[in-house]
Design a protein around this nucleic acid. Sequence first.
DNA 1: AAAATTGATCTACCAATGCATATCAATATA
DNA 2: TATATTGATATGCATTGGTAGATCAATTTT
Lengths: 103, 103
Amino acid sequence: MSYVTEQLLEDLREARTSKGFSQRDLSARSGVPQSHISKIESGGVDLRVSSLIALARVLDLELFLAPKKSITAINSIIRSSKGIQDEGEEILPAYRLDDDCDE
Amino acid sequence: MSYVTEQLLEDLREARTSKGFSQRDLSARSGVPQSHISKIESGGVDLRVSSLIALARVLDLELFLAPKKSITAINSIIRSSKGIQDEGEEILPAYRLDDDCDE
DNA sequence: AAAATTGATCTACCAATGCATATCAATATA
DNA sequence: TATATTGATATGCATTGGTAGATCAATTTT
């Protein structure tokens, strides 16, 4: 029901929230208006590739075009890079820094 | 100098030609006009994500959003899935089927 | 309770995509 | 040589993204 893949939208939103960014934060850093980001994340817009790339850059993401037959291997890599096991078991850090640490 | 990443455009064109599709073939299969495909491949258009996905689907490609830190690993996988060694040495098939084989 | 954040929504307006169609030069094929 | 294919371009037009604001309900924070 949306122009963009659900997965793509999920990834966008997850990357944003996991960085602790609000839509307004992302807006300030990417130049894309908050109202537009809201529409994008809700799948209500068939955004242009340049916009997607602009958002991705701020979120330390990269846009890829990969052969379908390699998607499982790639997803496995992505999951592990997020610190999540293939089984779906998340690896928790041994300790956690306080809220406001400098980077 | 283009809205879309050079890499993305390269991948598109390479996938098309390696499938033996002309721009008109791709147009017929994807629904995207040939004139538009031409502009897209030359980087002269900031196309919408749905268009990119439509083209990708026909070319057996998938659009991805991956963490930057995993790009090397992913590129390695993609290269190998294309039958190319990490060193850049292409692996040739042991034999080659005739031009007009059924799939 | 009061103030600040957050995401969703709305209104305009402008620029650009995307579509349909046709053409053209260059190359390949009959 | 005549024909067909390929990629690049051109035009006109409708649609939609994108921007710049502002507002609002729901939470959070002070």
